[in-house]
Nucleic acid binder design. Structure first.
Lengths: 325, 325
DNA sequence: TTGTATGCGTTATCAG
DNA sequence: CTGATAACGCATACAA
């Protein structure tokens, strides 16, 4: 790999000059600029980002910590974040935590060692006080850590309300919310709050089913939902915490010969591609992934620039009615 | 951020000594080792990877270039690759090319600037001769570039045979292969070769439908398949090039009141999670993603060590029969 | 067993 | 307008 030195020699100038044309700093005569460009061209020179980053004390890397990119929601999130990061000149370091606290910590340490410019954290098994130690531009997805760490989230309470009200409006009298682990202290838990509040208010029988921490255990969802119907054969509405869970619910209903939406109505969450792909197409609550991604990147960059930012960044969700309701 | 210098001062030694205990090199007395560890502990010291990498001339980063991580197959691939890379001490830089040649090139340049240790390339719109310029450990997914660049692939021809034979064995007489853009020169095209060979051999009527380059245009798949049935209402077998396409096929069949597998049989590809998730569950050809990922990482590391490696790395696929056949 | 000096590739400061 | 030099944080060769 040619270095700036090689370019300088070839162009008959010093490294200083080359650096100047590279960064468009200071005054340079057109003649030498041309010479330098020519030399760079001929050598196929690429500036060494490691050296640059070392000098300025940080890299152009962003860390993205998610449970697993194999999950459709996080896959779409990752794709979106990468796109916006790229547009702003940043690269994304992919970290799959598997919702494992040790891994989360390990990844954060790793990212610090690599002098990343910032971290987007969308996996939350870590304790709150451990976030204080990060000392790096940080944005959280769907979790409020404290007054200092900004987070991006969609309006989970609103989502829960929309879903629950829709089920009840459509005539459901006995509904269940299949959600993640509520002890994980994520804002997604507000969906369940909304579910409970709404169901209670409107006088409808309701149940909450928590799944284990396992990220992507479809089979487990199916078993859980099957148990649910065993206990409550007359259940007529399911609010699933992800489209994947909704698909599992559809499957179980099909096996139990329950017609959708006639016997059971289902609302999914995230509105990932899968929701409109399967049959019946899933009614789902859409999180505005694109805007959330853009906002996250933006918040990170603002932190780097020591700008003032708001801690709470909650975007509205949208209900997409389809065939399961 | 504390540096090695701070640690040295705190421990009352020089940076050399600290560096030594850090890297377990040379002889160090237990006493000073303890002192140094203590100092590192107290300062919460993290070695600066940028500096390390700059010194040794390359980073611990791997570039992963895929069309988009929003696609289930590539999402699972990315998750798997990240896991193996992590196990070997490497981090993954995520690059979504959108199957765009300029982006691919741009990403490669970027990765070089960042002194990545290697590149895994699973997006192939670039010309063959451009690969020669990479000069970096490189592994290709599903494309044979030349005699110098190793690739990892599953046995596409076998996959095509398995799928086609299954359809015919089950009684299909008029079948279609819905595949990607055959001009892209990927090994996946061998699926179509196998399809054509097998159908011809066994005397069954067959058609090939190519989709546009767009990576994730589900709607487009649906339109294409609809057109297909318009032209050939008596089509009774579809070999889809991905599970996503298979889902689209299922959907179209459902809309056209065609029963699966009674009227139309469908075989998908990749056997991603989605295949066993939807109803009917999709018969699919499984690519051994885990092994392919491990192999790719392994090939990269071997190249770094200047070890001899084989260019052709083809793993067998497995047919998973489910409900669509 | 430990310390000194040098260089990795780049940018910034300060001269000229 | 351009050049010499120091510094970023670390690891190695060579001394001691």
């Amino acid at each position: 790999m040619p270095t700036i030195k090689d370019v300088a020699e070839k162009a008959g100038v010093t490294v200083t000059t080359v650096s100047r044309v590279l960064n468009n700093r200071g005054y340079i005569s057109e003649a030498t600029r041309k010479k330098v460009y020519k030399a760079m061209e001929e050598l196929n020179y690429q500036p060494n980002e490691l050296a640059r980053s070392l000098f300025r004390g940080k890299s152009q890397l962003l860390g993205l910590i998610i449970p697993t990119v194999a999950h459709p929601f996080f896959a779409e999130l990752a794709a979106s974040i990468e796109a916006y990061a790229h547009a702003k000149g940043y690269k994304v370091l992919l970290c799959n935590s598997q919702l494992n606290r040790e891994k989360e910590k390990e990844y954060i340490e790793m990212l610090k060692r690599h002098q990343v410019a910032g971290i987007i954290m969308a996996s939350h098994t870590m304790e709150v006080d451990e976030f204080a130690k990060v000392k790096l531009p940080l944005v959280t997805f769907d979790r409020r850590i404290g007054a200092n760490i900004p987070y991006v989230s969609s309006d989970n309470y609103q989502g829960g309300q929309l879903a629950t009200n829709l089920l009840i409006d459509k005539g459901c009298r006995k509904i269940a919310h299949v959600c993640g682990n509520l002890s994980l202290n994520m804002l997604a838990n507000k969906r369940n709050e909304a579910f409970v509040d709404t169901a209670r208010e409107r006088g409808v029988e309701y149940y909450t089913i928590q799944t284990e921490i396992n990220v992507f255990e479809t089979k487990q969802y199916e078993l859980l939902i099957r148990d649910l119907f065993n206990e409550h054969p007359d259940l007529d509405g399911i609010f699933a915490n992800s489209d994947l869970m909704a698909v599992s619910a559809i499957k179980v209903c099909s096996l139990l010969k329950k017609r959708i939406p006639h016997d059971v109505r289902i609302v999914g969450y995230d509105d990932t591609n899968i929701a409109s792909l399967v049959l019946p197409q899933i009614t789902s609550i859409r999180q505005p992934i694109e805007q959330m991604s853009a906002l996250a990147i933006d918040l990170l960059i603002r932190q780097m620039n020591k700008e003032q930012i708001s801690v709470d960044n909650i975007l509205p969700v949208i209900l997409h009615e389809r065939e399961t309701t």
